[in-house]
């Protein structure tokens, strides 16, 4: 997995609440057996007309947000299906950080597995970032995971919380499976014990 490094980027505002994974990547794009190439289909039904032309009002079609790397979103982002194609599509588009007041559990976990950082903040702070994002392309925010800080284009610093283990994995680009396999003796021991206690499993 790629390492998460401090960056400054454009933030796109998407204040809609309950943005679900069907909106992020509609099911007709789930038929791929690859992990890449989903960026062009990100938010497909909100972003394109049926004939493939762009819907100009959609935020990521606007000139100032086409290179966005940060998404400031409404509450309960990523609800719905477990499809990891949702973070794959965001990542493939170039989004590295999503800020909301809350995230659906599976989407939240899936994002970290792909080197992305979902940040949950209280409403007042999301409001500040949303207002900053609405300023457009000149309003670049800086995300520093090491310091757990987002700095707005005006220099306002907002601190955020992140799970220490997930932070460690992101900063170092660590592969979960490799880490878990280092604990194989614990898994072996558990299997032996559970197998004796609950042999029917």
């Amino acid at each position: 997995m790629k390492k998460f490094e401090t960056f400054s980027g454009i933030a796109a505002p998407m204040p809609l609440v309950n943005i679900d994974t069907d909106m992020i990547i509609p099911k007709r794009f789930l038929k791929s057996i690859q992990r890449t190439g989903f960026g062009v289909s990100l938010f497909d039904e909100m972003r394109y007309n049926r004939d493939g032309t762009e819907i100009p009002d959609f935020v990521l079609n606007k000139a100032q947000y086409r290179e966005a790397q940060i998404l400031i979103a409404g509450d309960n982002f990523g609800c719905g299906s477990s499809r990891e194609h949702a973070p794959w599509a965001l990542d493939d588009f170039g989004i590295k950080v999503i800020v909301s007041t809350s995230f659906a559990d599976i989407f939240f976990n899936n994002s970290f597995k792909n080197g992305m950082l979902p940040i949950a903040l209280p409403q007042e702070q999301v409001d500040i970032l949303m207002a900053d994002a609405e300023k457009g392309a000149n309003a670049r925010m800086t995300v520093d995971l090491e310091a757990q800080e987002i700095t707005t284009s005006d220099g306002e610093v907002i601190k955020f919380e992140v799970d220490a283990f997930k932070k460690h994995c992101l900063l170092n680009g660590l592969d979960d499976i490799g880490l878990t396999m280092e604990k194989e003796t614990s898994i072996d021991a558990y299997e032996a014990k559970a197998g004796a206690e609950r042999p029917w499993v």
Partner: peptide, 30 residues
């Protein structure tokens, strides 16, 4: 790898959906 895995909770089983990276993790490490 499906959010409606919650269904199996009806048996008093702890059941939930996971993403594809986690599917790979469970396949490899259980």
């Amino acid at each position: 790898g499906d959010s409606h895995t919650a269904t199996h909770g009806a048996f008093g089983a702890l059941a939930h959906g996971i993403g594809t990276s986690e599917v790979e993790h469970v396949l490899a490490t259980q």
